[in-house]
Design a protein around this nucleic acid. Structure first.
Length: 427
RNA sequence: GGAGAGAUGGCCGAGCCGGUCGAAGGCGCUCGCCUGCUAAGCGAGUAGGGGAUUACAAAUUCCCUCGAGGGUUCGAAUCCCUCUCUCUCCGCCA
Protein backbone atom coordinates (compact mmCIF):
# COMPACT_ATOMS: atom_id res chain seq x y z
CA UNK A 1 0.00 0.00 0.00
CA UNK A 2 1.19 3.48 -0.80
CA UNK A 3 1.01 6.47 1.52
CA UNK A 4 -2.33 8.26 1.22
CA UNK A 5 -0.80 11.71 1.48
CA UNK A 6 1.90 10.84 -0.98
CA UNK A 7 -0.64 9.57 -3.51
CA UNK A 8 -2.69 12.76 -3.08
CA UNK A 9 0.34 14.90 -3.84
CA UNK A 10 1.73 12.71 -6.62
CA UNK A 11 -1.29 11.63 -8.60
CA UNK A 12 0.57 12.15 -11.86
CA UNK A 13 3.39 9.85 -10.72
CA UNK A 14 0.87 7.20 -9.75
CA UNK A 15 -0.93 7.60 -13.05
CA UNK A 16 2.31 7.14 -14.95
CA UNK A 17 3.29 4.08 -12.90
CA UNK A 18 -0.13 2.50 -13.50
CA UNK A 19 0.37 3.09 -17.18
CA UNK A 20 3.77 1.39 -17.15
CA UNK A 21 2.28 -1.62 -15.41
CA UNK A 22 -0.80 -1.57 -17.61
CA UNK A 23 -3.04 -1.49 -14.55
CA UNK A 24 -6.20 0.55 -14.26
CA UNK A 25 -7.35 2.30 -11.08
CA UNK A 26 -9.96 5.04 -10.84
CA UNK A 27 -7.86 7.96 -9.66
CA UNK A 28 -10.63 10.51 -10.23
CA UNK A 29 -12.69 8.58 -7.72
CA UNK A 30 -9.69 8.63 -5.41
CA UNK A 31 -9.53 12.40 -5.58
CA UNK A 32 -13.23 12.66 -4.82
CA UNK A 33 -13.14 10.30 -1.86
CA UNK A 34 -10.00 11.82 -0.43
CA UNK A 35 -11.45 15.34 -0.48
CA UNK A 36 -14.76 14.18 0.94
CA UNK A 37 -12.99 12.29 3.69
CA UNK A 38 -11.06 15.33 4.85
CA UNK A 39 -14.12 17.53 4.76
CA UNK A 40 -16.02 15.05 6.89
CA UNK A 41 -13.19 14.65 9.38
CA UNK A 42 -13.00 18.39 9.97
CA UNK A 43 -16.73 18.62 10.40
CA UNK A 44 -17.15 15.65 12.71
CA UNK A 45 -14.19 16.63 14.84
CA UNK A 46 -15.56 20.10 15.31
CA UNK A 47 -18.76 18.57 16.63
CA UNK A 48 -16.94 16.12 18.87
CA UNK A 49 -14.87 18.86 20.33
CA UNK A 50 -18.03 20.70 21.25
CA UNK A 51 -19.55 17.57 22.76
CA UNK A 52 -16.47 17.02 24.89
CA UNK A 53 -16.47 20.53 26.32
CA UNK A 54 -20.18 20.54 27.04
CA UNK A 55 -19.98 17.10 28.66
CA UNK A 56 -17.26 18.47 30.89
CA UNK A 57 -19.51 21.38 31.81
CA UNK A 58 -22.37 19.04 32.60
CA UNK A 59 -20.14 17.19 35.03
CA UNK A 60 -19.26 20.42 36.81
CA UNK A 61 -22.83 21.68 36.92
CA UNK A 62 -24.02 18.38 38.33
CA UNK A 63 -21.52 18.67 41.17
CA UNK A 64 -22.92 22.02 42.18
CA UNK A 65 -26.44 20.71 41.76
CA UNK A 66 -27.46 23.07 38.97
CA UNK A 67 -29.97 21.94 36.32
CA UNK A 68 -28.49 20.37 33.17
CA UNK A 69 -31.58 19.27 31.27
CA UNK A 70 -31.14 21.76 28.40
CA UNK A 71 -27.50 20.81 27.83
CA UNK A 72 -28.28 17.09 27.83
CA UNK A 73 -31.07 17.59 25.33
CA UNK A 74 -28.82 19.59 23.03
CA UNK A 75 -26.08 17.00 23.31
CA UNK A 76 -28.49 14.21 22.47
CA UNK A 77 -29.21 15.92 19.16
CA UNK A 78 -25.55 16.61 18.60
CA UNK A 79 -24.80 12.94 19.27
CA UNK A 80 -27.22 11.85 16.54
CA UNK A 81 -25.59 14.16 14.07
CA UNK A 82 -22.13 12.91 14.97
CA UNK A 83 -23.29 9.33 14.52
CA UNK A 84 -24.60 10.11 11.06
CA UNK A 85 -21.42 11.80 9.95
CA UNK A 86 -19.28 9.03 11.44
CA UNK A 87 -21.18 6.42 9.49
CA UNK A 88 -20.74 8.34 6.28
CA UNK A 89 -17.04 8.74 7.05
CA UNK A 90 -16.66 5.01 7.65
CA UNK A 91 -18.22 4.29 4.27
CA UNK A 92 -15.90 6.71 2.53
CA UNK A 93 -12.84 5.36 4.27
CA UNK A 94 -13.77 1.81 3.38
CA UNK A 95 -14.08 2.63 -0.28
CA UNK A 96 -10.93 4.70 -0.21
CA UNK A 97 -9.05 1.93 1.60
CA UNK A 98 -10.21 -0.57 -1.00
CA UNK A 99 -8.98 1.71 -3.74
CA UNK A 100 -5.61 2.11 -2.01
CA UNK A 101 -5.23 -1.68 -1.73
CA UNK A 102 -5.74 -1.92 -5.49
CA UNK A 103 -2.87 0.41 -6.31
CA UNK A 104 0.33 -1.55 -6.96
CA UNK A 105 3.76 -0.38 -5.92
CA UNK A 106 5.56 2.27 -8.00
CA UNK A 107 8.35 0.67 -10.04
CA UNK A 108 11.83 2.00 -9.34
CA UNK A 109 13.31 4.25 -12.04
CA UNK A 110 15.90 1.62 -12.92
CA UNK A 111 13.20 -0.88 -13.92
CA UNK A 112 12.86 -1.33 -17.70
CA UNK A 113 9.50 -0.23 -19.07
CA UNK A 114 7.54 -2.79 -21.06
CA UNK A 115 4.20 -4.52 -21.23
CA UNK A 116 5.26 -8.04 -20.27
CA UNK A 117 8.12 -10.49 -19.80
CA UNK A 118 9.41 -9.87 -23.30
CA UNK A 119 10.74 -6.56 -22.00
CA UNK A 120 12.75 -8.16 -19.21
CA UNK A 121 16.48 -7.49 -19.47
CA UNK A 122 19.32 -9.92 -18.81
CA UNK A 123 21.76 -8.16 -16.49
CA UNK A 124 24.42 -10.88 -16.17
CA UNK A 125 25.13 -14.53 -16.74
CA UNK A 126 27.39 -16.75 -14.69
CA UNK A 127 29.54 -19.53 -16.06
CA UNK A 128 28.47 -21.45 -19.16
CA UNK A 129 26.04 -24.13 -20.13
CA UNK A 130 27.68 -27.58 -19.86
CA UNK A 131 28.47 -29.41 -23.09
CA UNK A 132 27.16 -32.94 -23.50
CA UNK A 133 28.31 -35.51 -26.04
CA UNK A 134 24.91 -37.13 -25.74
CA UNK A 135 21.34 -35.88 -25.72
CA UNK A 136 20.73 -34.56 -22.18
CA UNK A 137 17.52 -35.81 -20.62
CA UNK A 138 14.95 -33.72 -18.78
CA UNK A 139 14.99 -34.22 -15.02
CA UNK A 140 11.70 -36.09 -14.92
CA UNK A 141 13.06 -38.79 -17.23
CA UNK A 142 16.28 -38.95 -15.22
CA UNK A 143 14.46 -39.05 -11.92
CA UNK A 144 11.97 -41.68 -13.00
CA UNK A 145 14.66 -43.83 -14.60
CA UNK A 146 16.81 -43.61 -11.48
CA UNK A 147 13.82 -44.43 -9.32
CA UNK A 148 14.19 -41.33 -7.14
CA UNK A 149 11.18 -39.36 -8.43
CA UNK A 150 7.77 -40.99 -8.32
CA UNK A 151 5.01 -38.86 -9.81
CA UNK A 152 2.44 -41.61 -10.26
CA UNK A 153 2.30 -42.61 -6.63
CA UNK A 154 2.29 -38.96 -5.56
CA UNK A 155 -0.79 -38.44 -7.74
CA UNK A 156 -2.39 -41.47 -6.11
CA UNK A 157 -1.64 -40.19 -2.62
CA UNK A 158 -2.64 -36.59 -3.32
CA UNK A 159 -3.22 -35.59 -6.91
CA UNK A 160 -1.28 -34.36 -9.88
CA UNK A 161 1.45 -31.73 -9.35
CA UNK A 162 2.92 -33.49 -6.36
CA UNK A 163 6.00 -35.66 -6.12
CA UNK A 164 7.19 -38.53 -3.97
CA UNK A 165 10.95 -38.60 -3.55
CA UNK A 166 12.64 -41.95 -2.96
CA UNK A 167 15.90 -42.61 -1.20
CA UNK A 168 18.71 -40.51 -2.65
CA UNK A 169 16.11 -38.25 -4.18
CA UNK A 170 14.66 -37.53 -0.75
CA UNK A 171 18.15 -37.20 0.61
CA UNK A 172 19.12 -34.80 -2.17
CA UNK A 173 16.15 -32.59 -1.38
CA UNK A 174 17.04 -32.59 2.31
CA UNK A 175 20.72 -32.02 1.70
CA UNK A 176 20.04 -29.03 -0.53
CA UNK A 177 17.95 -27.22 2.01
CA UNK A 178 20.48 -27.90 4.75
CA UNK A 179 23.29 -26.74 2.49
CA UNK A 180 21.46 -23.51 1.69
CA UNK A 181 20.57 -22.73 5.30
CA UNK A 182 24.13 -23.42 6.41
CA UNK A 183 25.61 -21.18 3.75
CA UNK A 184 23.28 -18.25 4.41
CA UNK A 185 23.64 -18.39 8.18
CA UNK A 186 27.40 -19.01 8.25
CA UNK A 187 28.53 -16.82 5.36
CA UNK A 188 25.90 -14.17 4.75
CA UNK A 189 24.77 -13.24 8.25
CA UNK A 190 21.19 -14.46 8.15
CA UNK A 191 19.37 -15.59 11.27
CA UNK A 192 17.59 -18.90 10.81
CA UNK A 193 13.93 -19.04 11.77
CA UNK A 194 11.29 -21.71 11.41
CA UNK A 195 7.85 -20.12 11.26
CA UNK A 196 4.26 -21.39 11.22
CA UNK A 197 3.21 -22.54 7.76
CA UNK A 198 -0.46 -21.83 8.40
CA UNK A 199 -1.16 -18.12 8.67
CA UNK A 200 -4.14 -15.85 9.24
CA UNK A 201 -5.51 -13.31 6.78
CA UNK A 202 -3.95 -10.34 8.55
CA UNK A 203 -0.54 -11.78 7.70
CA UNK A 204 -1.50 -12.39 4.09
CA UNK A 205 -2.85 -8.85 3.80
CA UNK A 206 0.38 -7.53 5.28
CA UNK A 207 2.51 -9.01 2.54
CA UNK A 208 0.00 -8.33 -0.24
CA UNK A 209 -1.38 -11.78 -1.15
CA UNK A 210 -4.79 -10.71 0.13
CA UNK A 211 -7.24 -9.40 -0.78
CA UNK A 212 -6.37 -9.59 -4.48
CA UNK A 213 -4.86 -13.04 -4.84
CA UNK A 214 -6.99 -15.31 -2.65
CA UNK A 215 -7.53 -17.82 -5.46
CA UNK A 216 -3.81 -18.70 -5.47
CA UNK A 217 -3.98 -19.94 -1.88
CA UNK A 218 -5.06 -23.12 -0.14
CA UNK A 219 -7.41 -22.29 2.69
CA UNK A 220 -8.03 -24.64 5.59
CA UNK A 221 -11.66 -25.64 5.69
CA UNK A 222 -13.69 -24.17 8.56
CA UNK A 223 -10.67 -22.28 9.84
CA UNK A 224 -9.50 -18.79 9.15
CA UNK A 225 -6.07 -20.08 8.20
CA UNK A 226 -4.20 -20.51 4.93
CA UNK A 227 -1.23 -22.64 3.88
CA UNK A 228 1.61 -20.29 3.10
CA UNK A 229 2.53 -19.79 -0.57
CA UNK A 230 6.01 -18.71 0.53
CA UNK A 231 7.90 -18.16 3.78
CA UNK A 232 7.89 -14.49 2.90
CA UNK A 233 4.45 -14.33 4.51
CA UNK A 234 5.17 -15.59 8.04
CA UNK A 235 8.72 -14.22 8.16
CA UNK A 236 7.86 -10.69 7.03
CA UNK A 237 4.99 -10.71 9.51
CA UNK A 238 7.35 -11.49 12.38
CA UNK A 239 7.62 -7.75 12.91
CA UNK A 240 4.09 -6.75 11.97
CA UNK A 241 2.79 -3.95 14.22
CA UNK A 242 6.20 -3.46 15.76
CA UNK A 243 8.45 -0.45 16.11
CA UNK A 244 12.08 -1.46 15.83
CA UNK A 245 15.02 0.50 17.17
CA UNK A 246 17.54 1.94 14.74
CA UNK A 247 20.14 -0.57 15.96
CA UNK A 248 17.71 -3.38 15.14
CA UNK A 249 18.30 -2.69 11.46
CA UNK A 250 19.18 -4.33 9.24
CA UNK A 251 17.66 -7.69 10.12
CA UNK A 252 18.36 -10.67 7.89
CA UNK A 253 16.29 -13.81 8.27
CA UNK A 254 16.34 -17.08 6.39
CA UNK A 255 13.79 -19.82 6.70
CA UNK A 256 13.14 -23.22 5.23
CA UNK A 257 9.46 -23.98 4.75
CA UNK A 258 7.24 -26.01 2.50
CA UNK A 259 5.16 -23.77 0.23
CA UNK A 260 1.67 -24.40 -1.12
CA UNK A 261 0.09 -22.88 -4.21
CA UNK A 262 -3.20 -23.73 -5.82
CA UNK A 263 -1.82 -22.85 -9.26
CA UNK A 264 -5.32 -22.03 -10.38
CA UNK A 265 -5.28 -21.09 -14.02
CA UNK A 266 -1.95 -22.80 -14.63
CA UNK A 267 -3.41 -26.04 -15.98
CA UNK A 268 -1.67 -27.29 -19.06
CA UNK A 269 1.47 -25.34 -18.26
CA UNK A 270 4.60 -27.20 -17.25
CA UNK A 271 2.75 -30.26 -16.12
CA UNK A 272 5.83 -32.44 -16.17
CA UNK A 273 8.57 -32.74 -13.62
CA UNK A 274 9.29 -30.67 -10.55
CA UNK A 275 8.78 -27.22 -12.00
CA UNK A 276 5.28 -26.24 -10.94
CA UNK A 277 3.84 -28.09 -7.96
CA UNK A 278 1.14 -27.52 -5.38
CA UNK A 279 3.68 -28.26 -2.64
CA UNK A 280 7.36 -27.47 -2.79
CA UNK A 281 10.21 -26.68 -0.45
CA UNK A 282 12.00 -23.38 -0.42
CA UNK A 283 14.61 -21.55 1.55
CA UNK A 284 13.62 -17.91 1.75
CA UNK A 285 15.68 -14.82 2.54
CA UNK A 286 13.94 -11.83 4.13
CA UNK A 287 15.45 -8.47 5.03
CA UNK A 288 14.22 -5.52 7.07
CA UNK A 289 16.41 -2.53 6.27
CA UNK A 290 16.81 1.23 6.53
CA UNK A 291 15.07 2.99 3.60
CA UNK A 292 18.32 4.58 2.46
CA UNK A 293 19.99 1.21 1.90
CA UNK A 294 17.33 -0.94 0.36
CA UNK A 295 18.65 -0.94 -3.21
CA UNK A 296 22.17 -1.85 -2.10
CA UNK A 297 20.57 -4.53 0.05
CA UNK A 298 18.68 -5.87 -2.96
CA UNK A 299 21.96 -6.32 -4.84
CA UNK A 300 23.45 -8.20 -1.89
CA UNK A 301 20.35 -10.32 -1.40
CA UNK A 302 20.44 -11.33 -5.05
CA UNK A 303 24.16 -12.09 -4.78
CA UNK A 304 23.46 -14.25 -1.71
CA UNK A 305 20.92 -16.27 -3.66
CA UNK A 306 23.28 -16.55 -6.63
CA UNK A 307 26.06 -17.85 -4.40
CA UNK A 308 24.14 -21.11 -3.99
CA UNK A 309 24.26 -21.83 -7.70
CA UNK A 310 27.88 -20.72 -7.82
CA UNK A 311 28.73 -23.15 -5.03
CA UNK A 312 26.93 -25.89 -6.95
CA UNK A 313 28.68 -24.72 -10.11
CA UNK A 314 25.54 -24.45 -12.20
CA UNK A 315 25.12 -21.95 -15.03
CA UNK A 316 22.47 -19.26 -14.61
CA UNK A 317 21.52 -15.76 -15.61
CA UNK A 318 19.99 -12.83 -13.76
CA UNK A 319 17.25 -10.75 -15.31
CA UNK A 320 15.54 -7.61 -14.14
CA UNK A 321 11.77 -7.73 -14.53
CA UNK A 322 10.10 -5.09 -16.70
CA UNK A 323 7.29 -2.95 -15.33
CA UNK A 324 4.61 -5.12 -16.94
CA UNK A 325 6.00 -8.31 -15.39
CA UNK A 326 6.67 -6.90 -11.95
CA UNK A 327 4.80 -8.32 -8.96
CA UNK A 328 2.04 -6.23 -7.41
CA UNK A 329 3.95 -5.29 -4.24
CA UNK A 330 7.42 -5.03 -5.72
CA UNK A 331 9.30 -1.89 -6.78
CA UNK A 332 12.10 -3.88 -8.39
CA UNK A 333 12.68 -7.57 -8.91
CA UNK A 334 15.59 -9.66 -10.13
CA UNK A 335 14.85 -13.19 -11.22
CA UNK A 336 17.61 -15.76 -11.18
CA UNK A 337 17.09 -18.24 -13.99
CA UNK A 338 18.93 -21.51 -13.86
CA UNK A 339 19.99 -23.42 -16.95
CA UNK A 340 18.18 -26.71 -17.46
CA UNK A 341 19.87 -28.51 -20.37
CA UNK A 342 17.36 -31.37 -20.55
CA UNK A 343 14.36 -29.12 -20.27
CA UNK A 344 16.10 -26.98 -22.85
CA UNK A 345 16.00 -23.51 -21.37
CA UNK A 346 16.31 -21.21 -18.41
CA UNK A 347 13.89 -21.51 -15.53
CA UNK A 348 13.25 -19.13 -12.68
CA UNK A 349 14.75 -20.49 -9.49
CA UNK A 350 14.71 -17.34 -7.39
CA UNK A 351 12.92 -14.03 -7.38
CA UNK A 352 14.51 -11.22 -5.36
CA UNK A 353 12.47 -8.10 -4.69
CA UNK A 354 12.65 -4.76 -2.99
CA UNK A 355 9.20 -3.79 -1.74
CA UNK A 356 10.43 -0.50 -0.31
CA UNK A 357 7.83 0.52 2.30
CA UNK A 358 4.87 -1.02 0.46
CA UNK A 359 4.62 -4.13 2.62
CA UNK A 360 5.86 -2.29 5.70
CA UNK A 361 2.96 0.15 5.47
CA UNK A 362 0.43 -2.64 5.06
CA UNK A 363 1.96 -4.67 7.85
CA UNK A 364 2.80 -1.62 9.98
CA UNK A 365 6.49 -2.40 10.42
CA UNK A 366 8.38 0.66 11.60
CA UNK A 367 11.59 1.81 13.21
CA UNK A 368 12.93 4.88 14.98
CA UNK A 369 16.09 6.50 13.72
CA UNK A 370 16.75 7.93 17.17
CA UNK A 371 15.00 7.00 20.43
CA UNK A 372 12.76 10.06 20.24
CA UNK A 373 12.22 10.28 16.50
CA UNK A 374 8.87 9.63 14.86
CA UNK A 375 8.55 6.07 13.65
CA UNK A 376 9.26 5.52 9.95
CA UNK A 377 8.41 2.52 7.82
CA UNK A 378 11.24 0.10 7.17
CA UNK A 379 11.94 -1.29 3.74
CA UNK A 380 11.39 -5.01 3.26
CA UNK A 381 13.03 -7.31 0.75
CA UNK A 382 12.92 -10.97 0.08
CA UNK A 383 14.14 -13.59 -2.31
CA UNK A 384 14.25 -17.31 -2.71
CA UNK A 385 17.54 -18.75 -1.73
CA UNK A 386 16.55 -21.05 -3.46
CA UNK A 387 13.51 -23.05 -4.52
CA UNK A 388 14.59 -26.59 -3.60
CA UNK A 389 12.62 -28.64 -6.12
CA UNK A 390 13.86 -26.63 -9.05
CA UNK A 391 17.38 -26.89 -7.67
CA UNK A 392 17.01 -30.66 -7.63
CA UNK A 393 15.93 -30.45 -11.26
CA UNK A 394 18.95 -28.29 -12.05
CA UNK A 395 21.39 -30.66 -10.32
CA UNK A 396 19.93 -33.69 -12.09
CA UNK A 397 19.98 -32.11 -15.54
CA UNK A 398 23.36 -30.38 -15.29
CA UNK A 399 25.22 -33.25 -13.62
CA UNK A 400 23.78 -36.09 -15.65
CA UNK A 401 26.12 -38.58 -17.24
CA UNK A 402 25.89 -40.56 -20.47
CA UNK A 403 24.96 -43.71 -18.53
CA UNK A 404 21.95 -42.02 -16.93
CA UNK A 405 23.57 -41.60 -13.51
CA UNK A 406 24.04 -38.21 -11.88
CA UNK A 407 27.20 -36.92 -10.24
CA UNK A 408 26.76 -35.17 -6.91
CA UNK A 409 28.18 -31.62 -6.87
CA UNK A 410 31.32 -31.43 -4.70
CA UNK A 411 29.75 -28.97 -2.27
CA UNK A 412 26.84 -31.28 -1.62
CA UNK A 413 28.73 -34.51 -0.96
CA UNK A 414 29.25 -33.95 2.77
CA UNK A 415 25.50 -33.56 3.04
CA UNK A 416 24.89 -36.85 1.25
CA UNK A 417 27.16 -38.86 3.47
CA UNK A 418 29.95 -38.75 0.92
CA UNK A 419 27.90 -40.18 -1.93
CA UNK A 420 29.50 -39.10 -5.21
CA UNK A 421 27.05 -40.44 -7.70
CA UNK A 422 23.35 -41.14 -7.81
CA UNK A 423 22.75 -44.47 -9.47
CA UNK A 424 19.53 -46.35 -10.08
CA UNK A 425 17.48 -47.45 -7.10
CA UNK A 426 14.47 -49.73 -7.17
CA UNK A 427 11.70 -50.25 -4.65
C1' G B 1 -12.71 -30.44 24.45
C1' G B 2 -14.58 -28.97 30.03
C1' A B 3 -14.07 -25.23 34.33
C1' G B 4 -12.17 -20.64 35.92
C1' A B 5 -9.09 -15.95 35.69
C1' G B 6 -7.30 -12.11 32.86
C1' A B 7 -5.91 -8.53 28.49
C1' U B 8 -4.21 -0.77 30.58
C1' G B 9 1.68 3.39 28.01
C1' G B 10 9.00 0.30 26.65
C1' C B 11 8.13 -2.97 31.22
C1' C B 12 5.52 -3.71 36.03
C1' G B 13 1.09 -2.03 37.90
C1' A B 14 -3.37 1.17 39.92
C1' G B 15 -8.07 2.70 38.19
C1' C B 16 -13.13 -0.83 36.90
C1' C B 17 -20.29 1.51 42.46
C1' G B 18 -19.42 6.06 34.50
C1' G B 19 -17.85 12.72 34.63
C1' U B 20 -10.77 17.18 33.09
C1' C B 21 -8.04 9.52 32.99
C1' G B 22 -4.40 9.22 27.52
C1' A B 23 -4.60 7.39 32.28
C1' A B 24 -1.71 7.31 39.71
C1' G B 25 2.73 4.93 41.35
C1' G B 26 7.22 2.27 40.32
C1' C B 27 11.05 0.56 36.93
C1' G B 28 13.53 1.61 32.51
C1' C B 29 15.13 5.34 29.11
C1' U B 30 16.58 10.71 27.58
C1' C B 31 18.32 15.59 28.97
C1' G B 32 20.12 18.79 32.89
C1' C B 33 22.15 19.58 38.03
C1' C B 34 25.27 17.58 41.69
C1' U B 35 29.77 14.48 42.25
C1' G B 36 37.59 13.26 41.58
C1' C B 37 35.17 8.66 38.55
C1' U B 38 31.14 5.27 39.38
C1' A B 39 26.94 4.55 42.39
C1' A B 40 23.42 7.23 45.01
C1' G B 41 20.64 11.91 45.03
C1' C B 42 17.84 16.18 42.78
C1' G B 43 14.93 18.47 38.55
C1' A B 44 12.52 17.98 33.79
C1' G B 45 10.88 14.92 29.92
C1' U B 46 9.29 10.10 27.96
C1' A B 47 2.69 6.15 23.62
C1' G B 48 0.66 5.78 18.71
C1' G B 49 -2.45 7.41 14.75
C1' G B 50 -5.40 11.02 12.04
C1' G B 51 -7.16 16.18 10.85
C1' A B 52 -6.73 21.84 10.73
C1' U B 53 -3.27 26.00 10.20
C1' U B 54 1.69 25.81 7.61
C1' A B 55 6.40 25.04 3.36
C1' C B 56 3.68 17.37 3.61
C1' A B 57 9.17 22.38 8.60
C1' A B 58 8.85 24.26 13.61
C1' A B 59 5.11 25.77 16.72
C1' U B 60 -0.07 25.67 17.93
C1' U B 61 -4.70 23.28 18.15
C1' C B 62 -8.42 19.47 17.69
C1' C B 63 -10.10 14.33 17.22
C1' C B 64 -9.33 9.02 17.93
C1' U B 65 -6.97 4.87 20.48
C1' C B 66 -6.77 1.51 27.77
C1' G B 67 -6.82 -6.64 23.25
C1' A B 68 -10.51 -6.11 18.56
C1' G B 69 -15.50 -4.96 16.96
C1' G B 70 -20.43 -3.44 18.22
C1' G B 71 -24.10 -1.40 21.90
C1' U B 72 -26.09 1.74 26.20
C1' U B 73 -25.24 7.08 27.70
C1' C B 74 -25.13 14.12 27.26
C1' G B 75 -20.48 11.53 28.67
C1' A B 76 -17.09 4.74 29.18
C1' A B 77 -10.58 2.19 30.51
C1' U B 78 -14.94 1.91 33.75
C1' C B 79 -21.81 -0.91 32.21
C1' C B 80 -23.80 -4.72 28.22
C1' C B 81 -22.94 -8.14 23.79
C1' U B 82 -19.66 -10.71 20.22
C1' C B 83 -14.80 -12.17 18.86
C1' U B 84 -9.47 -12.94 19.52
C1' C B 85 -5.50 -13.96 22.60
C1' U B 86 -3.01 -15.22 27.37
C1' C B 87 -2.81 -17.83 32.10
C1' U B 88 -4.42 -21.82 35.79
C1' C B 89 -6.81 -26.63 36.64
C1' C B 90 -8.97 -31.14 34.28
C1' G B 91 -9.19 -34.32 29.88
C1' C B 92 -6.42 -35.77 25.43
C1' C B 93 -2.20 -36.34 23.01
C1' A B 94 3.65 -35.69 19.84
Amino acid sequence: MLDLRWVRDNLDVVQEALGKRDVRVDLARFRELDGERRRLISEVERLKSRRNTVSGEIAKLKKTGEPVEDQIKAMRELGDEIRKLDMRLTEIEEELGQLMLDIPNIPDESVPVGPDESANVVVRTWSEAPKFDFEPKPHWDLGIDLGILDFERAAKIARTRFVLYWELGARLERSLLNFMLDLHTAKHGYTEVFPPILVNDASLTGTGQLPKFAEDLFKVENENLYLIPTAEVPVTNIHRDEILGDDDLPRYYCAYTPCFRSEAGAYGKETRGLIRHHQFNKVELVKFVHPDNSYAELERLTADAESILQALNIHYRVIVLATGDLGFSSAKTYDIEVWLPGFGGYKEISSCSNFEDFQARRANIRFRETPKAKPRFVHTLNGSGLAIGRTVAAVLENYQQADGTVLVPEALRPYLGGVKRIGPVRF
